[in-house]
Amino acid sequence: MPNNEHIVSSYEDELTELARAISEMGGLVEKALANAVDALVRTDEELAMAVVVADKKIDAMQHLIDEKSVSIIARRQPVASDLRLVIASIHVANDLERIGDMAKSTARRATQFEGVTMSTQFKNGLRHMGELAQRQVKLALDAFAAKDKDTAVEVFERDTDVDALYVSLFRELLTYMMEDPRNITMCTHLLFCGKNLERVGDHSTNIAEQAYFLATGKSLISDIEDLRREKLQP
């Protein structure tokens, strides 16, 4: 029965367009994050500046998604799954914009490293953390696009990995600073970058929560205890 589409096709088109805009913005943010981490690890000032410039596009996308959402609410009065898509899109666009800012801030710090020599060992932890954060963003966006609650739960549960990695990065950088006070400036920059990536993890979790809400109409936070219990049962 072909009843998955709205009777009013222009309404259907608007909802599809909104979901597409989220995907596009997600793509821009994933790229910005990857480039920021890459620029940091390789000390590539040019790439870092490109990330800073590209953030304007991300901000513009958020603005566009807000406008589209407000317009749909005003003209279509969406309900049920449609309403959830619109509301969740506003939230996700907001979190994506914040991730974009984290990438920009990381890239800005990467430009400070030009000409400074330091052991590549310093950046190993950040590279690892960057990979994990990128993976979280990607999974969260996939969960949202596919309305997949299981993936959303997975992202939510994995956030502790990012947090744990941040704590170990903190300890590691602290050791370098104690070894030689000349490392302090560099390591402080790196620590801030680590903090940025940790927050990227948090925003990914927010997106995963919205994906769960979109798929089920329920709150992941209030369901998580039950879900964990279910998982423990044979």
């Binding site: 009843n3 009777i7 049920a80």
Partner: peptide, 18 residues
């Protein structure tokens, strides 16, 4: 109106079936 449990309810209130 936020989270109907039955697919037919969902389809009707969102304007998918007449």
């Amino acid at each position: 109106f936020t989270n109907p449990r039955e697919k037919r309810t969902q389809d009707y209130i969102t304007g998918r079936i007449g």
